[in-house]
Design a protein around this nucleic acid. Structure first.
Lengths: 393, 393
DNA sequence: AAAACTTTTTATTTTTTTTAAAAAGTATGA
DNA sequence: TCATACTTTTTAAAAAAAATAAAAAGTTTT
């Protein structure tokens, strides 16, 4: 019964506050239908009226919101080295601080148990009753089968799916999604308006991920592998990539490639404030670049130029409304922006670039966490089979 | 009233013969709704019952078809040098022969009037009454604004759109579409089943066109320029392309590039049956390659390899169900197939190629003509504003 | 050859949308 | 300033479409 009229709940969640008319447009259903649905949800104390909104002429509409503490979602954003967890309420507000846990994904047999322990700790420390939590949304790198709930690259468990395993131990429903896909979802729902319809979302991180929004929907391809931007065969540098091929974009443009280039440059006697570190990490390079170190800026710009070259190809094929730079690397967005734009201009048919906007995300480092929440919201209809739902087609 | 229940007419047109159940699935509407609609159309003598179909167990369904001579569509397929026109009935059968007219598109002020004269001649020679024709579907190269009905590259007319101009002179409604997009439409509706949902349709011709089918729909991008496969910046050969950039795929892989390479090779003393021609045309090369000439086969294979390299990129990004080789060049499909497959295997992450089928179209040289018909069928709802229609969303 | 199972068609009920009307505002101008 | 014209939102009544149930017409199994 909590899950009656999922589409209305989704609409309210993403817009925070909406009128009956807004919801009718969002859901594509008639005003009377929406009116009845909201009345039901108000009786159930899931939705409340929050006041009257200004109008451009005409009767002022009543507006509605979800009641914040009806339910909570746990979002778990993992990368190769760090796992971040936060609790989010029904108004999409973080409840308490984002908790960070060092957790190595690769080559770590204990990763799955560490992860479960982290989640349990967050639940217990929150002081909230277990039945107040709706579900857990986990976002992480790797080839992910979101439908079955498995990650083909990391956190393998025997005899059952990753999702059922974690759900069993945490006592809550679990949904997983690829990190780049999750970031694209977050950008679509909470990011810039130009990211809503046809947008390419770049996840600048240890690799270069891509999430595609085509005709207002995430596009994953026929078998779920679309958006392999990182492994576009663009270079003839002979460098071996983790995928087994040579010359992938990743070998020149990822944070890993940047680390390698920095080490090489310093060995060859480059003057740089990076010399003060024993071993140079990507975070060091980012820090020093932000402080203005010329060498750090130069190698970041180089990588950005290669990303721009890849984006030129994307532009020719997809003609998107926008390209959004998001993910971990978006914090240095301004450093990437101009070399990327430069490369795009050089390698594109002129009028293509004029129709596509290149922008840095406004979600900062929270995109992946918001993507985990979005993953749960999008799967809400799976939580209660008796719910009054129209499954997505 | 002829145009009542457009969606049912479309379903019958594309499937030729269908049961009520088939149509219910095709239109996404309920059986009672479809039942009533078909009854209406039968009263109007647009649809007839054509018999009972076998069943795998259970009552045998009645099947229905459009009545072939209720209406006719004129399909006009243009390329740079040749215009082909055919009349098609409501059972998607060609009425009479395909008529060919030499008509240069580029640098020809008189092209528009020649085109209108050709269309008029076909109408008159058919002996059919003018009011039996539904519309004209014109497919041609260039940047086409199908919504406004203009071609930004060819056949410009002052003060009005191309579509209204031709419609005025021919006395029939006109719809235009880009040739590669039209071919993609034809492959989706009449081609191999694997081309229906997520497919990349390559138009091998004077350029290398691409039509994308994503989630069962033609995808044209945010401003209609998606699918610029021909101008992917993949080569560092310094060759200037018609688009103004250097190193586009087209400079190595189009029929024009093949012509140039053949001339160059012959000048350098290559032994080949091509030597018997004064000037070597693409058609000559295709002919001799089909007859087994080693040199002709070699330069075609070279171009094919470059196309395969481009397709590898497409595969990484789109992960389609299939790639279909169509258009003029598909008649030598088998010659392209293996070098293209080879290049794809070399440049793709292994498991990507295993999920995508590469195939040659089964529509031969008719794809573009069928695409013109499809363009009309898809725009049928625009013909009669009073019709009982639900416009596509 | 009857029973069990499928698939299609018809009839009935329920749901949802469409249309129309009413309510609640804003802007305008005599 | 206050009636008039115009908007937008909300409520009510009518019409359309879908979902459900039942019947009809077959096929397959035992």
């Amino acid at each position: 019964m909590f899950l009656k009229h999922i589409d209305l709940i989704k609409g309210l969640y993403y817009s925070k506050t909406a009128s009956l008319n807004d919801l009718s447009i969002y859901t594509g259903r008639s005003i009377p239908y929406v009116t009845k649905g909201i009345a039901d949800l108000m009786k159930l104390d899931i939705v409340k009226e929050v006041g009257i909104r200004a109008s451009s002429g005409g009767r002022k509409p009543a507006t509605y919101s979800l009641i914040a503490d009806t339910g909570f979602i746990i979002s778990v954003a993992m990368n190769q080295f760090l796992t971040r967890i936060v609790i989010v309420n029904m108004n999409n507000e973080f409840v308490g601080e984002v908790q960070e846990f060092e957790l190595k994904l690769g080559d770590n047999k204990d990763a799955i148990h560490s992860l479960i322990a982290c989640i349990k700790a967050v639940v217990v420390n929150s002081g909230l009753a277990q039945d107040k939590f709706l579900a857990i949304g986990i976002t992480m790198p790797g080839f992910i089968d979101a439908f079955l709930g498995n990650n083909l690259s990391f956190l393998k468990v025997p005899d059952e799916t990753l999702v059922t395993y974690i759900a069993k131990h945490a006592g809550l429903p679990v949904f997983i999604e690829n990190d780049s896909t999750a970031i694209a979802l977050a950008e679509q729902k909470f990011g810039l308006p130009i990211a809503r319809n046809n947008s390419m979302i770049i996840n600048l991180g240890w690799g270069v991920g891509l999430g595609m929004i085509i005709n207002k929907e995430i596009f994953k391809g026929h078998s779920g592998f679309a958006g392999e931007f990182s492994h576009l065969p663009l270079h003839k540098n002979g460098k071996l990539c983790s995928c087994g091929k040579q010359g992938c974009l990743e070998t020149e443009a990822s944070l890993l490639a940047i680390e390698a280039k920095a080490a090489e440059g310093l060995k060859q006697g480059q003057v740089s404030s990076l010399l003060k570190y024993d071993t140079v990490s990507a975070d060091n390079i980012i820090d020093e670049a932000l402080k203005g170190d010329a060498f750090a800026i130069k190698i970041i710009a180089e990588a950005a130029y290669f990303i721009g070259q890849g984006l030129a190809i994307l532009l020719h094929l997809m003609n998107p409304e926008s390209i959004i730079l998001s993910g971990k690397g978006s914090v240095i967005g301004k450093l990437w922006l101009s070399p990327i734009q430069q490369a795009m201009n050089e390698h594109c048919i002129p009028h293509l670039t004029t129709y596509t906007q290149l922008a840095v995300s406004n979600l900062g480092n929270n995109a992946q966490l918001l993507g985990g929440v979005t993953t749960v919201i999008e799967n809400l209809y799976k939580l209660n089979p008796q719910a009054n739902i129209s499954e997505p087609t």
